[in-house]
Design a protein around this nucleic acid. Structure first.
Lengths: 209, 209
DNA sequence: TAGATTGTTAATCGATTAACAATC
DNA sequence: TAGATTGTTAATCGATTAACAATC
């Protein structure tokens, strides 16, 4: 895979583009100019053209962008066509929510297992997925090679579990624990969902306005 | 409140500083230099000094930063001392998780009500908080003046509910719906927790490495 | 065709990093 | 005191915005 460096600022905006294009497509809109999309998203037209141009020439002079095409392209760039495998570690309340409500498929993932240490949960089926004992994790990974793990375990266990997962070959951690994880192995992607941080930021904003 | 402009990049890092300082304090560490904190957080010492200097002179030459003091100061800056009020709208699975597990107090919030439209839920007590009918929302807000609402309602209702909340005087929306909200009233803070976006970003990262 | 809008280069702006005198 | 480390200015780097020729 070629690597024409894409800045973090651009990558952060990609899912937003994707969401807006999905919305527009669902509304039946067929074309949009960088100007109109910019108004909608609170970005300048120039920025949108720069961002998209990182990945190719998706627009057409005098016309703008064809929404179905652009949506599809950005989906490809994000990787939603790959159907990667994800497992959920920790089937407590939050794990439950993910298993029950989250549209993994829309993000290009297939989920087929969850793990917990609570025996009461073993065998429980939550939204099509069976909860298994954490002791079966290694065998499961060896057999099915999941790509990503969603971590909803207690904070004390997060790092040690991460170390194991990385050693087993997992390539990404979707981290819901209030802990910052590291990996000795390079190339492992961490995506932290620190709810606490977002609420603190909101507090800051309302406290300084 | 004076307004020496603080960039978004700095504000985004504040909760992370706060978390690391909390961790360090819990470990009994008393002082830290910008160099050591930088190593820990993956930032340059210069950046840390610049960031903190936006808010005051918290360090001491030859010594570094006194952790309890700095932790307290950043807490003040974030607003955790104010005890603001928050309500949860939508007591489905995700609302449930928040009511049951989230440490609102640590973010400077007090939670004393949740609202839903499902009659089965009316009166249910979830983690000390009673679920009320959405029809009582206006009266409740008029009486208790909550500052922030956590939105865990279906996406179709998110914007119209937001409009109502803003009209009632709410000052911040902690948005868990997969929708981008806007407000005609300026000065309302939105903090989006777009889980979909974070998983898409993770997919991008593992697809391009 | 004429108008609209892109791709793309150049200019600007802002954020990060480096450097160092001040000082604990 | 000497060593360490800050606050703070200046230099660098990167991201955003502006501009405009190309062209649909």
């Amino acid at each position: 895979m070629s690597k024409p460096y894409i800045s973090d600022a651009v990558i952060r905006r990609l899912p937003r583009y994707y969401r807006h294009l999905n919305d527009l497509q669902n509304q039946g809109v067929v074309r949009i100019s960088s100007g109109a999309l910019g108004t909608r998203m609170g970005l300048t037209p120039a920025q949108i053209r720069q961002d998209l141009h990182c990945f190719g020439d998706f627009g057409q002079q005098g016309y703008g962008y064809h929404i179905p095409t652009l949506r599809h392209e950005i989906g490809q760039i994000l990787g939603v066509d790959h159907v990667r495998r994800i497992i959920v570690l920790g089937a407590g309340h939050l794990g439950h929510v993910l298993l029950k409500n989250f549209d993994f498929q829309a993000a290009g993932f297939q989920i087929d297992a969850a793990f917990d240490i609570q025996p009461e949960l073993f065998g429980a089926v939550i939204g099509n997925v069976t909860v298994r004992p954490m002791t079966e994790l290694a065998d499961y990974v060896a057999l099915h090679h999941p790509d990503v793990a969603a971590l909803t375990v207690p904070p004390q266990e997060a790092q040690s579990l991460t170390d194991k997962l990385v050693a087993m070959g997992l390539r990404g951690i979707w981290n819901f624990t209030n802990v910052e994880l590291t990996s000795p192995v390079p190339g492992v992607a961490f995506e932290d969902v620190h709810l606490m941080d977002t609420l603190l930021k909101l507090n800051y904003r309302i406290s300084h306005s």
